[in-house]
């Protein structure tokens, strides 16, 4: 089933419930694209009518703003808001916690008011309402740990939705010593993703990879494309890329359902 853009659905006069905000990583990064596709399939399976902005979508502006470049942030944000308002978007779901935070908390003051949910929250809704049903087979009893992204967890106080999904999959959840409000950043936030680390004695993603390895989990589940990149690089640096898989929770759910 083809995924439609807002431009297409509005020209065909179709009403959609949800805008799926894909984000730069979800659109272009090969690893994050897999998450985008997995989540899209879940939306289709649940019978959710949704569309994307496609080529009309721009970066939310989060890294520009946090780097200090308010001009570029405003340029991107105001154009996005203009587009979203033009299509009369009401509810947005995104698989990127940085986009999620900026759209939810920073766009309103610029004139963009939407109900914004993170994809783990949306998947929780779908499971609770029975629109999606997990089998609980693929990951049952597997030792899995969960990495809280800063922008979903500590910054937006959502610790339970992703964990409830893991519980639904019947995994053996083994928490890292730093989790929830005390979770350690993967090292990508604040536009760090786009620059080399400052001088220090260790990379942050390696520090976090060690937290993961210490749990003895076979899989670390994440909810953010940048965390996934950072953790993957961290595992490579520790020579553990074959021992520990890094998966977005939506990928796990899709694998369970299929």
């Amino acid at each position: 089933m083809k995924i439609k853009t807002m431009a297409e659905v509005s020209s065909e006069d179709i009403h959609v419930e949800i805008l799926f905000w894909v984000g730069c990583a979800g659109s272009f990064d090969a690893r994050a694209q897999r998450v985008t596709k997995a989540f899209s399939k879940l939306l289709q399976k649940a019978g959710i009518s949704f569309a994307i902005l496609g080529n009309e979508e721009m970066c939310s502006g989060d890294p520009a703003r946090r780097a200090g470049n308010e001009f570029i942030f405003q340029m991107l944000a105001l154009q996005n808001i203009n587009t979203l308002n033009m299509y009369g978007v009401k509810k947005i779901v995104t698989a990127c916690p940085h986009c999620f935070n900026t759209l939810k908390n920073e766009y309103p003051e610029l004139g963009g008011n939407y109900e914004v949910v993170h994809h783990t929250q949306f998947l929780q809704e779908l499971l609770n309402s029975g629109k999606l049903k997990v089998q609980g087979g693929a990951f049952k009893g597997k030792k899995i740990t969960y990495h809280d992204s800063c922008y979903l967890g500590r910054i937006n106080n959502e610790y339970e939705a992703p964990r409830s999904l893991l519980n639904a999959l019947d995994v053996d959840l083994s928490e890292m010593k730093r989790s929830k409000a005390n979770g350690l950043c993967c090292g990508a936030g604040g536009a760090q993703m786009f620059k080399e680390d400052e001088a220090g004695n260790k990379k942050i993603n390696i520090e976090r990879a060690e937290d993961v390895i210490n749990t003895g989990a076979q899989i670390v589940s994440a909810n953010c494309p940048f965390c996934i990149t950072m953790l993957t690089d961290g595992m490579k640096a520790k020579d553990k890329e074959d021992n520990v898989m890094i998966m977005d929770i939506s990928e796990m759910i899709l694998q369970d359902i299929q």
Partner: peptide, 13 residues
Amino acid sequence: GCVWQIPEEREKW
């Protein structure tokens, strides 16, 4: 309008 300069279309995926 993207964090990376990429020649592809955003909706290609």
